[in-house]
Simulated assay, not measured.
Amino acid sequence: MPTVLESDGFQVRILLPPREHGPPHVHVSRAGAEVVILLPLEGRALAIRTVYRMRTADVIAAVRLVEAHLPLLTQSWRTYHG
């Protein structure tokens, strides 16, 4: 699972095939907690899929981080998943 971005204690990762699956999304972790965020591809809006033990303030910060780096994260997803 490559880390494609690190910022303010957050690590943004994309799992690789065959373990990974669509729809396009990233795993954002910090301090043992994680949020899975769907990327706004295939006609969808950015959305939170799952939250694991992450505080609401950190979820909001993670969403803002993903929004700020959408071109990089979208390109990274396409690089790893075609």
Score class of each variant (00 low, 15 high):
7 S>L: 08
7 S>V: 14
7 S>A: 14
8 D>K: 15
8 D>G: 09
9 G>R: 13
9 G>M: 11
10 F>N: 10
11 Q>S: 15
12 V>W: 14
12 V>N: 10
12 V>C: 14
13 R>V: 08
13 R>Y: 10
14 I>P: 01
14 I>M: 10
15 L>I: 12
15 L>S: 13
16 L>V: 14
16 L>N: 15
16 L>M: 14
16 L>T: 10
21 H>Q: 08
21 H>R: 12
24 P>L: 03
24 P>Q: 00
25 H>R: 11
25 H>C: 02
25 H>S: 04
25 H>I: 00
27 H>Y: 05
28 V>M: 01
28 V>A: 00
28 V>L: 00
29 S>Q: 07
30 R>M: 04
30 R>A: 07
31 A>W: 09
31 A>K: 12
31 A>L: 11
31 A>T: 13
31 A>Y: 07
32 G>A: 02
34 E>P: 07
34 E>F: 04
35 V>H: 03
35 V>C: 01
35 V>I: 04
35 V>F: 02
36 V>P: 00
37 I>G: 01
38 L>M: 11
38 L>D: 14
38 L>A: 09
39 L>R: 03
39 L>V: 01
40 P>C: 07
40 P>E: 08
40 P>M: 12
40 P>N: 10
41 L>I: 08
41 L>S: 05
43 G>V: 03
43 G>A: 03
43 G>T: 06
44 R>L: 12
44 R>E: 15
45 A>L: 11
47 A>L: 05
47 A>N: 11
48 I>C: 08
48 I>R: 03
48 I>G: 05
48 I>V: 11
49 R>E: 10
51 V>C: 01
52 Y>F: 14
52 Y>D: 10
53 R>C: 12
55 R>S: 11
56 T>L: 11
57 A>M: 05
59 V>K: 13
59 V>F: 06
59 V>T: 08
60 I>T: 10
61 A>Y: 03
62 A>R: 04
62 A>T: 00
63 V>Q: 02
66 V>P: 02
66 V>I: 12
66 V>H: 02
67 E>G: 09
67 E>S: 12
68 A>Y: 11
69 H>L: 07
69 H>G: 07
70 L>N: 13
70 L>C: 07
